Amino acid sequence: MTSERDHRIDFFRGLALIFIFWDHVPHNPLGQITLRNFGFSDAAEIFVFLAGYAAVLAYGKILQRDGYLIACVKILRRTWVLYVVHIFLLAMLMGIVFFANSHVETRDLVEEMGMHHFITNPQQALTDELLLRFKPNLMDPLPLYIVLLAGLPLVLPLLVRKAWAVVALSLTVYLLAPWFGWNLAAIKDGVWYFNPVVWQLLFVLGGAAAIYGQRPRLPDTRSLMHQPLFVSAALYVVFAGVITISWRWPEIHDAVMPAWLSNLLYPISKTDLSPVRLMHFLALAYVTAKLLPGRSWTRNWWAQQSCRMGRYSLEIFCLGVLLAPLADMINAMTNDAFAMQIFTALVGVGLMGLLGAWLDFNKRLTQSPIPATA
């Protein structure tokens, strides 16, 4: 495996973090330009796929260099860090939501965030928090990543050597899970909003893409319009975009949508990663990779800001989770004025960018050699 960092991965991971923040602020106008408005999938698919890509790329190198035991130890150590961050992040989020709720009279933000379980039964809520069973709104992606990363040592050696076998096994589990109702338990006899038994497929596909991307292969000299796979993927992306945009006008959608197609598409489950969502993301990822094969465009100043956020995805994600209810509070206190909604959305992204810049500066500062004194 090559050690050169692919800044395109950082860019799209940073872009996904921006989309996640905007999508989590209710009535945010900039939330109307995120991925979920133009296709069946959204930023969650980007986040999980690139998490698998980055994890296999990083720990696959450690596996080859230092052996399986060291790779397992480092994976589990990272998983523990994520678990501790999840506990502290949830505590901070509850504090912010309770604070925001005391300043907003027209809505119950505690109820909207799914935190009444902590009020009605705090002791059980603390236990559920430690068991990853209590996950208020905004907190679902991190527990999913914790579970997926914790399971990586089980498949990493085979994934590095025979990725197709792991993908086949993962696909089998994905197809069987909805039929047998496989999911993890959550509070009040519920289940995880992101079912890790099916979302693991996207994580594994990301890892397989990392393995495949490191292997030398002959470039396809045909034009994109003469590549059947690209054309098929592009047509599906356009089809999904048209269907999704039509949801804004239910009367028109219901009038033009054939019954057979409606029965085939709906319901589009996010919990069980509906096949049409999965296929949309894979098609979109393939089209994007074909249209942006090089890396020179990541040197653009705006792209570099997203790349920087993507390099520190855990810290930026946590900040976005904490900023979303604060932005919602400010918007609600100003009666959801359009200008204030735009302002809070842009300020939030600006603060995320500043955190990325600080983390990048601090990393360079700690890595710079200390000059020897005479």
Rank of each mutant, 00 (worst) to 15 (best):
S3H: 04
S3I: 13
S3N: 11
R5T: 05
D6M: 04
R8W: 01
F11A: 00
F11H: 01
A16I: 06
I18M: 14
I18Q: 03
F19Y: 13
D23W: 06
H24G: 08
P26R: 02
I33M: 04
D42H: 07
A43G: 15
V48T: 07
V48C: 03
A58W: 01
A58D: 04
Y59N: 03
G60F: 06
L63G: 09
L63W: 09
V73G: 11
V73T: 12
V73A: 11
I75G: 15
I75E: 03
R77W: 07
R77M: 08
T79H: 05
W80Q: 08
V81S: 10
V81R: 06
L82V: 10
V84T: 10
I87M: 10
L89C: 12
L89P: 12
L93K: 12
L93T: 13
F98V: 15
F99K: 02
A100P: 14
A100G: 15
E105Y: 04
E111T: 11
E111Y: 09
G114T: 11
H117L: 13
H117P: 04
F118D: 00
P122I: 07
A125D: 08
A125H: 10
D128T: 12
E129V: 09
L130I: 09
L131N: 10
R133T: 07
K135M: 09
M139W: 10
L142K: 05
L144R: 01
L149R: 00
L149C: 12
G151W: 09
L154Y: 05
L158S: 05
L159C: 09
L159W: 14
V160E: 11
R161K: 11
A165L: 13
T172G: 14
W179R: 08
K188R: 14
Y193Q: 12
Y193A: 13
Y193E: 11
N195S: 05
P196M: 11
V197C: 12
V198R: 10
V198M: 05
W199V: 00
L201E: 14
L205V: 11
G206C: 08
A209G: 03
I211L: 06
I211N: 03
G213D: 11
P219E: 07
D220M: 10
S223C: 03
F230G: 10
L235Y: 04
V237C: 13
F239V: 08
A255Q: 05
P258K: 08
P258M: 08
A259K: 12
N263T: 06
Y266M: 06
S269M: 04
S269H: 04
L273S: 04
L282Q: 02
A283N: 04
L284M: 12
V287P: 05
T288W: 02
T288K: 02
L291D: 09
L292Y: 15
T298A: 02
N300A: 07
A303E: 02
Q304H: 07
Q304E: 08
C307M: 07
C307I: 09
S313D: 02
L314Q: 03
L314N: 07
E315A: 15
I316Y: 06
M329T: 05
M329W: 00
T334V: 07
N335H: 13
A339K: 06
I342S: 04
A345W: 00
V349W: 00
V349S: 03
L351F: 02
L355V: 12
F361Q: 01
K363P: 03
K363L: 10
Q367G: 14
Q367P: 07
S368W: 04
P369K: 13
A372S: 11
